Simulated assay, not measured.
Amino acid sequence: MLIDLIKGHGSGNDFLLIDEISNPYSFSETERAELASLLCNRNSDLGADGILFIMKSDHADGRMRVFNTDGSEASMCGNGLRLVARYVCEMQGLNEAVIETMKADLKVSKQQDIFPTVTTYQVEISPVSFRLSDLPLNLNEPNLINENIPELSEELIFSALAVPNPHLISIVETEQLNSGEQKKISEKVNNPNELFPDGVNVSFVKSLDEGSIYVNTFERGVGFTNACGTAMSASSLVTCLQGLNEVEDVINVYNNGGKVQCVVHENDEDYYIDLIGNATYLYNAQVEVDLSRKTFEVSSKEDFAEQQTYEKLQAEAQAYLKGAGL
Rank of each mutant, 00 (worst) to 15 (best):
M102F: 11
N143W: 09
L177Q: 06
S126G: 15
T174S: 06
Y87P: 00
K259A: 07
L326D: 05
I6H: 03
E187Y: 12
Y121F: 11
M102P: 00
T295K: 12
N267G: 01
G258L: 01
E219V: 06
L17Q: 03
E154H: 15
G78M: 04
M91A: 14
V123H: 05
E181T: 13
A319Y: 11
S292A: 12
R86F: 05
G199E: 09
E96I: 07
R82C: 07
N190K: 09
E90N: 15
F296W: 03
V128W: 02
L2C: 00
S75G: 06
S186L: 02
D198L: 11
V289L: 00
E155K: 14
I251D: 01
V247G: 01
I149S: 05
R63S: 14
S153F: 09
V260Q: 01
E90Q: 15
Y254C: 02
E96D: 12
Y121L: 03
M102R: 14
F130I: 07
Q176C: 00
V88M: 04
V200S: 05
K312V: 09
V108Q: 06
L38M: 10
L326T: 04
G229Y: 04
T295C: 00
N284F: 08
N193R: 08
S72D: 12
L156K: 10
L237D: 01
Y121C: 05
G211P: 01
D19R: 05
R220C: 04
L208C: 02
N190E: 08
L38D: 13
V128L: 00
D14I: 02
D134E: 13
L81V: 08
N148C: 08
L156I: 07
V298Y: 08
S129I: 07
K183A: 13
V260C: 08
K294S: 15
L313E: 10
N190I: 09
D105M: 02
N216A: 12
S300Y: 12
S129Q: 07
N148P: 00
S129A: 06
M102Y: 14
Y121R: 08
T69D: 08
Y254K: 05
D14N: 11
S300M: 06
A60K: 09
E246Q: 15
D61I: 04
Y25G: 07
R42M: 07
I21F: 04
N148K: 15
I251P: 00
T117R: 15
P116H: 13
L244P: 01
F130G: 05
D290L: 01
S44G: 12
L313D: 03
G221E: 13
F53I: 05
D70N: 14
A317Q: 04
L94Y: 13
L237A: 02
A36D: 11
Q314A: 13
H265M: 00
M91T: 15
A48Y: 06
K188Q: 12
L81S: 05
N43C: 03
E155R: 14
S236M: 08
S207A: 15
I185T: 08
K7M: 04
A162D: 12
L94H: 11
S236F: 08
A324M: 12
N138T: 13
I3W: 03
G47I: 09
D249I: 04
L282Y: 09
